[in-house]
Design a binder for these strands. Structure first.
Length: 569
RNA sequence: CGGGGCGUAGCGCAGCUUGGUCAGCGCGCCUGCCUUGGGCGCAGGAGGUCGGCGGUUCGAAUCCGCCCGCCCCGACCA
């Protein structure tokens, strides 16, 4: 219940051409948010109401799933992040600061460490399982914030953590959270795809992202439109066609390639298509050094390589290592004659003959290289990113490239936090074990942006009922007309009693301005008090939908009907 | 972090190439009149160290250097 005359919601008629994303433009124009600095936004009263509604939906579903809400500090001792190795892993993305005594702290980018330490108070299997969650501000010093509220440096997120005695228990806790997420997406009226993803370098498995499919999204994934299989390129499985060598093996040739290091350069220089090249990528896998081979036009998936070599830690080998094993400057490594490394080759190369590789000498490449003859493959594996056009592993249909906004992310952590932080319990058998954890994130401010991104038209935002900042706006057109004003005031009095959240548009503005702003703000129900008020009638409309003229006394009934769906038909 | 763009009145922009009636426009704001169903109309008015610092010059919004900030593409992203 508020009057627009008192509402702090400055609307903008124009906005800089630099602001590109629809959600960003509309949330700014409609007076929901303001930018303080790159990736930092103030939520104005209307924006806050939307976020609160999203939060309440999330809260209800979390509670219904048996999770318990708590509230953890945003400020963490850096030491805690060092125990799990994440201070280093996150690097500059973690916002660090010191207190007056010089003790190092950080602003939490997430809360696994803090919640795990808290959970370590659990002593017995009898206290398990449980799931904790909070709705908290997160800080991430992203190298490039973008897209308005989609990717920012300070944002609010619901993060939940489950604690179980074993993996079977985790699976159960995880399934409950996933089910809750499905209901949340339904309630905020967003379409979504559940996408298999990578747990990232820190570990975890069964990682899934809930993605809003939209061209303006920044995540990329592949999806089979016939059976619904979806995955990020790094983890996407695909059906491999049986490859047969189509050509005879030709004699190996050395070819001078002065200064030609990259695939593009070599392709250009030798005049061969990139699929005839084979990339040799040298990685440090824990203590070992491995060479991964993929076709020149493909991208290596570090996730798949890491699985194939069963390494805890995988990173590009240092230049010195590459030079040692290949005997050549970076850019000329190849499988023929390389030393001290295991060679892993992408399955796809089984069908390749006579390809071009680095020559392990400065400015040298080799032509007509063949595996088996010129070098031995130690291990064949799927090592490349999936691509659009690959075949679905389930049904064989083609995979399509999608872009999306990542709304939520779930994954199974196992004991990767409970072990270093000593979150143990005594099991039935008297054995001391680390708790088995899962974690479940959902960005609430991002969700507001995603809803706008998905639901708007040329005139402005079209909020679903479930998260609209107000459900009904009474638009009083002529403020000077006593009769009209009386009708508007009566509605403003009565509609809340009928259960509606009401905004009264009573500013000293012209009718046009009020209509434009009402559409821009996207309030689902509009009650227009205008000329017809003299006859005791008002116009009841759905933003983006139908409109009808009714007696003032019937406005509530008409609104109930017209607003019975979450989004206009 | 690499590439590109931008920074001039509260907001949106022009001016910069070619230095000198260039401190300009639209919207908003204030006053008065008028109007009240889709960002009215008329008249008058206030408001800017041209992102910052330094340099070139008789003279800099304009040219040069450094810095800061913001946007976009890429790298990165639990």
């Amino acid at each position: 219940m508020v009057r627009t005359r008192e509402l702090f919601a400055p609307t903008l008629r124009q906005i800089s051409g630099e602001v590109e994303l629809a959600s960003h433009r509309l949330l700014l124009r409609a007076g929901f948010v303001r930018q303080l600095a790159a990736g930092m936004y103030s939520l104005l009263p209307l924006g806050l109401r939307v976020v609160r509604k999203v939060e309440n939906i999330v809260r209800q579903e979390m509670d219904a799933a048996g999770a318990q809400e708590l509230f953890l500090p945003a400020l963490h001792p850096l030491e805690l992040w060092e125990k799990t190795g994440r201070a280093q892993y996150w690097g500059d993305e973690l916002m660090k600061l010191k207190d007056r005594t010089g003790r190092p702290f950080c602003l939490g980018g997430t809360h696994e460490e803090v919640v795990t330490q808290l959970a370590s108070e659990v002593k017995s299997y009898r206290e398990l399982p449980f799931t904790l969650y909070q709705i908290q501000t997160k800080f991430r010093d992203d190298p490039r914030p973008r897209g308005g509220l989609v990717r920012v440096r300070e944002f609010t997120m619901k993060d939940a953590y489950s604690f179980d005695r074993d993996v079977a228990g985790l699976d159960c806790s995880y399934d409950k959270m996933v089910a809750a997420y499905h209901r949340i997406m339904e309630r905020v009226a967003l379409p979504y795809h559940v996408v298999d993803a990578s747990g990232g370098g820190i570990g975890g498995w069964d990682t899934k992202e809930f993605e809003l499919p939209t061209e303006s999204g920044e995540s990329h994934y592949l999806r089979c439109d016939s059976c619904g299989y979806a995955a990020t390129p790094e983890v996407a499985q695909y059906k491999r066609e049986v490859q047969t060598a189509g050509e005879d093996e030709l004699p190996l040739e050395r070819v001078e390639t002065p200064g030609q290091r990259t695939i593009d350069q070599v392709t250009e220089f030798l005049g061969v298509p990139p699929e005839k090249l084979v990339k040799t990528l040298i990685y440090q896998a824990d203590e070992r050094v491995v060479a991964a081979l993929v076709r020149g036009d493909r991208d290596l998936s570090e996730d798949k390589l890491q699985v194939a070599v069963e390494a805890k830690k995988l990173e590009m080998a240092a230049a010195a290592t590459i030079e040692r094993v290949s005997g050549a400057p970076v850019g000329f490594a190849g499988p023929v004659g390389i030393k001290e490394v295991e060679i892993l080759a992408d399955e796809e190369l089984r069908g390749e003959r006579n390809f071009v590789t680095g020559g392990n000498e400065d400015d040298l490449h080799l032509r007509n290289v063949n595996w088996g003859r010129d070098f031995e493959v130690n291990q064949w594996a799927d090592l490349r990113n999936g691509e659009a056009g690959d075949l679905c592993p389930g049904c064989g249909g083609p995979l399509t490239a999608y872009r999306g906004i990542e709304l939520a992310h779930v994954f199974k952590l196992g004991t990767i936090y409970s072990e270093p932080l000593a979150a143990h319990f005594l099991d039935e058998d008297g054995e001391r074990k680390p708790m088995v954890m899962g974690c479940y994130g959902l960005g609430t401010t991002r969700m507001m942006a995603a809803i706008v991104e998905h639901s708007h038209d040329d005139a402005g935002i079209v909020w679903p009922m479930s998260v609209a900042p107000y459900e009904v706006v009474i638009i009083l057109l002529n403020h000077d007309d006593e009769e009209h004003r009386a009708v508007a005031e009566k509605l403003y009095e009565e509609l809340p009693q009928e259960g509606f959240e009401v905004l009264l548009e009573d500013r000293f503005e012209r009718a046009g301005v009020k209509f434009k702003d009402a559409d821009l703000m996207g309030i689902p129900g509009q009650v227009v008090v205008g000329r017809l008020a003299a006859e005791g009638k008002v116009e009841v409309r759905r933003r983006g939908g139908e409109s009808r003229t009714v007696q003032v006394g019937d406005a509530g009934t008409a609104l109930r009907e017209i607003l019975s769906t979450n989004l206009p038909a």
